[in-house]
Amino acid sequence: MIRRLLPLVVAATCLGGIAQADTLETVRERGHLKCGINTGVVGFAAPDDKGIWRGFDVDLCRAVAATLFGDPDKVKYSNLTGKTRFTALRSGEIDLLSRNTTWTFSRDTDLQLTFAGVNYYDGQGFMVPKNLGVKSAKDLDGASVCIQTGTTTELNLADYFRQNGMTYKAVPIETTSEALTIYLAGRCDVYTTDASGLAATRAATKNPDAHDILPEIISKEPLGPVVRQGDDKWADIVRWTLNALIAAEEFGVTAANVKSMAGSSKNPEVRRLLGAEELQGRAALGLKARWAVDVISGVGNYGEIFERHLGKNTPVGLARGLNAQWKNGGLMYAAPFR
């Protein structure tokens, strides 16, 4: 039997040996982007009343689609859990992962991923019901902690409690929505995840004022878009789309004024960004001259995206904090378009 199967195996190996096509080309030929997002976190990726996915992470997918096709709607979304996200990316099921993913050393190297930048600087925090009377994470010795499995938060939590000589009882949970259900049922005393996720979760409760987010932030969680390793052109597309969004905010380019600024701006970098002057190397990525105009008119600049989904006037109600522009004391700092 083995002898009979052998030619098949050899044939399959040869057929299989054809190298994976360049993602940029594949996506262009396919005509739409396949983007992996969360299964539902208010503000980052959640379906609206009509079932259309909206949020901070979703808009990054849309921006990349606008870069490639001039149309932010040419995206197909896959909803991924903490468990399925990396395999979906590596197996080619999606082209881009935009799902609150923390940039860490082992993910970058061992899991063969490439992080194309940071679009949200986050940190892990704790949320407790107010009536528990807890004011600091240091008071949490012996508490039951609801935690999403398959994330960095799980490891951070173990580290933090070990470091402070405290014990806890883990209540592992698969998805954010489940975490909320179980936390509100009182199965655990405290829910821990990224501070942005806590704010989003708190916004989803009936009475947000009944819950406190503790002051301790126990980790650094730089979240960003992820692509497969070894596909540099594709990573460049994502990285510079993100840079364009951040730079646009820095230079005051908004969805409303981008068309007029493309003609009228005197700032040489803005002119290069918006295609009024030639940007060297643009052709190497196969980008149109006015690609950034499509992006910003389609989804707005970084600040606009933030305010639309996460800002003070949304249920999530987050301050810019670390995510403010570098000029305002934040960490958002776009590499120059030159």
Partner: peptide, 17 residues
């Protein structure tokens, strides 16, 4: 099916979940 079926398929092909 959800995490590794694609490894068993010829590279580049993928099915809907």
């Amino acid at each position: 099916a959800s995490t590794m079926l694609n490894y068993f398929l010829p590279p580049g092909t993928s099915f809907d979940l």
